[in-house]
Design a binder for these strands. Structure first.
Lengths: 135, 135
DNA sequence: ATCGTATTAAATTAAAACATTTAAGACATG
DNA sequence: CATGTCTTAAATGTTTTAATTTAATACGAT
């Protein structure tokens, strides 16, 4: 059978009942199986969802026509300016304001940025639609 | 081996080379296999990507306690008002101002909205946290 | 301490997906 | 019509994944 998601019927069923507020043991009773089984199935389902998210992220990066590398020691403001400049050069209109783009990069870079200073090299992908992603 | 996407190494490799503009036969040469193989692998990869998308859509729907359907021909302002009304009805506080919600919907709906008019039916999911998503 | 609830690891069996080859056919170009 | 490029279906051997059971652990409430 060809599924149209990366989840199995069983996994979807468990997620549905969880979303409705049922406890793991209630779900186990209803599905006629053990609590351990439900717990394991839900864990697998969440793992699959995580992988689905990572997949779409990867695809966006692959499709990104523009990649901007921010070297260490760069100031965050300069990084944002550089991203605007390179996008402009490529004819892409970035769909974020300066401050929200700065926040997005700061959040996406995690440990690679402290305060306003870039510590490790950051690669930023820019899609055709002007969406910005930190890789 | 635990992958962190729903794509295999092989599928990612093919997508990468395709994104770089290589033809199917060029990729086949580079990977030391047949054109048919590359073609089939790419097809499988795209199928997996489609399923990843459907998965996230399903999860959002499962998590959303409220779903609002906006019929065609609706004015964007009326759509936003309807969303506020339904959320209020469900005791959910929407964490967007009127204009930013309108912008969010317009952006999320893509081709389904032209100007301020809804062309195709739009389904909007509202999370417990008042986040609004166009599906 | 004993429930009730939940998570986790390990092992097992069955089902599904993967990459590949072969063969067939579509389609545009020379 | 021959050629290059690509897609598709079918068959196959291999690898992965799913669901389940059992057993162990954790933890708050009674």
């Amino acid at each position: 059978m060809t599924r149209d998601t990366v989840l199995t019927e069983r996994q979807i069923e468990v997620l549905k009942l969880k979303a409705q507020g049922l406890s793991t043991s209630e779900i186990a009773k209803r599905l006629g199986t053990t609590v351990a089984n439900v717990s394991a199935t839900e864990k697998k389902a969440r793992e699959n969802i995580r992988r689905a998210k990572n997949t779409l992220r990867l695809v966006k990066m692959l499709e990104a026509p523009l990649s901007v590398v921010i070297p260490p020691e760069t100031d965050l403001n300069d990084a944002v300016r550089e991203i605007y400049r390179r996008a402009d050069e490529a004819g892409i209109w970035i769909s974020h304001s300066f401050p929200s783009l700065a926040a997005l990069i700061q959040q996406g870079a995690g440990e690679k940025i402290r305060g306003r200073r870039v510590l490790e090299e950051i690669e930023v992908a820019i899609t055709r639609e002007g969406e910005v992603m930190v890789m």
